[in-house]
Computed example of a mutant assay.
Amino acid sequence: MNGTLENTIRAALSAAGYKYHGGTWLRLRGRGLDAISINAASGGWIDHRSGERGGYRALAEKLGLGHIHSGYHEWRQEQQRQQKPYDSQQRAKTLWARAVPAVQPKKPHHYTQRDWDEAQAQYRDHREAVWSYLASRGLDPLYWMQYIKIVARLEPRYRDGTPANLDAEMLERGADFCFLIPMYQPGKTQAAPIFAACRGCSWRFLSTDTAKREKSVAQCSAKRASRS
């Protein structure tokens, strides 16, 4: 394989006996197929007659092209090897810097107390959800909340109508925010600044919806009771 998904798609179509023409967009030829165009660079496709469309997985299933599925993963692995190694620690620090403390901070000097309370009101439900989550698992919220930060808004991404990142997957399961717990290097202390000895973050997805939260707490309590 020469490192391009385009050649994999063309080879799979030819091997399966499908005829086509075109460049970046391959237009299939033959009865019942002439309305289908395939993007040779990504594997995305559209049926101009029915309006049906999808990604490379749907294309492989529709046309019976197992080569595309396996070839795509080979291509992705090759692309990832060529890319700069992903710095997960830097990403964790970026998330932490943008997140909101789980415990409401003290009022800045340029705020009145009323204005500060109003500005923080948008995070009230998030903080209550984190508190309930910790309490439902037998953890002391008063202790843990000081080490936690909240990402109040998820950033879902989709590809061909399907979730393309964890935020999108959790959003479809009912979550609408997440909170971060810092992870420290062995033997290091939790000294300020909090990230001086931190190597990353663990995160949990939750919902600000009270009904969903109470259902989750009830399920957790039932599991704990069954273990005792």
Rank of each mutant, 00 (worst) to 15 (best):
R81I: 08
S88R: 11
K223T: 01
R10W: 00
R227T: 11
L63I: 08
A164N: 15
Q113W: 03
S136D: 11
Y123H: 10
G66L: 11
I46E: 05
R49A: 14
S37P: 01
P186A: 10
I9Y: 05
G71H: 12
H110L: 10
G43Y: 10
A58S: 13
P85W: 04
P193I: 00
G17Q: 06
C198P: 06
Q122M: 08
R81T: 09
L166T: 13
F205Y: 15
G187Q: 05
M170T: 00
G55Y: 03
V217W: 00
L59F: 09
W45G: 02
G44H: 10
A211W: 03
S202K: 08
Q79M: 13
Q89S: 12
K106C: 04
Y143S: 08
G54S: 07
H109C: 02
K107P: 00
D87C: 03
G187D: 07
H69Q: 12
G71C: 06
A192G: 09
Q77S: 15
K212Q: 14
A211E: 13
R159L: 15
A97V: 05
A11F: 01
H126E: 05
R224H: 05
H67L: 11
R173N: 06
T210V: 14
H126V: 00
E74P: 11
Y143T: 12
P108Y: 02
A11Q: 10
A175R: 00
D125Y: 04
A92N: 00
A191Q: 14
T162E: 15
Y86M: 08
I181Y: 12
T189Y: 08
S42W: 02
E214A: 14
R31A: 13
K223H: 08
F179C: 07
A99W: 07
Q104P: 01
R76K: 15
A211R: 09
M170C: 09
Y111H: 11
F179T: 02
A192R: 15
R114L: 05
I9S: 05
A121D: 07
Y20L: 00
